[in-house]
Amino acid sequence: MEYNQELQLTFDAKTESTRDGIGKGMVKLGEINDQVVVLCADLPDSTRVKEFKEKYPERYFDLGVAEQNMAGVSAGLALSGKIPYMASFGVFSPGRNWDQIRVSITYSRANVKILASHTGLGSAEDGASHQALEDIALTRVLPGMTVIAPSDSVEAMKAAIAAASIPGPVYIRYAKPAMPIYTTEATPFTIGKANVYTFGHDITILSTGITIASAMDAALELEQQGISAEVINVHTIKPLDEETILTSLRKTNCFVTIEDHQVMAGFGSAILELVSKHMCIPSELIGMQDSFGESGPFDALFEKYGIHKNNVVSAVHRVLDRKKL
């Protein structure tokens, strides 16, 4: 496996949730930027803004269970100069306040950062009502919205901090399960810049968010089968790093995407929209295939709903077969 040494990745099998990374990032950000305020709809512990709340109580506001008002108040704070981060579960925000995010935040170009925890199947035992599997679709269609899905806890910490340094609305989706940490403090993180983890020439595997582990495990298995995969962590879904993605695709001429989200209108669809303007190559999208989830252990859910490394491996074989045609 040819790893990208520039990224200084780690493979020591340590795990942590992206929500824990967000929590650490918010505390650091609170320290370095006194214009940052945090709003939360009764979920400071679950969304991990609790430490910010305890450290900076004068800059923390609990809205109660009122996500629509949270979006509007955040917009008002942003339009008068603050940098509000508003936190809830993805199913409620943007699930329940999409109109407010659309009009009060994105159309108004309000500098609001949206922290969406419990996205994807990672809400596991809570069941389908609490598994946000549509939020990438809901946010990436909004003009001017930046959409980020950090792949591990260290990257999540950097994303939380970096969001304050770009003007305009930013959506960060993160999750509950402890997942392998590949990035380190030294790994570069720039919003809008994808990171190539492994260099390969047979196929490109594009991942966003916590599915990077499935992608990396699949690449290892594929290597044993004599297939060289280029794995790219596309943490920023919008705007896409077109240059990095297209450079890889021009080399491999086929790809598989993986996401913890509906494939319809999600990350894979965003890649297809890009590719359709430049090339005509075989591909397959891994993710939720137009169904809701259910309660169960997170690993078992990934397996049942086809977001497992085995699904990546078999999709790669199908795509490579089509490439030979």
Binding site: L77, L79, S80, D99, V103, S108
Partner: peptide, 25 residues
């Protein structure tokens, strides 16, 4: 023009945010 509106209810929350900011600063 201080705010975008049309969908009812949205200006009210934004006004609240602006008033809160005045208190903070």
């Amino acid at each position: 023009i201080e705010n975008t509106s049309g969908p009812l209810g949205q200006g009210i929350s934004q006004a609240v945010g602006m008033a809160l900011r005045a208190k903070l600063d």
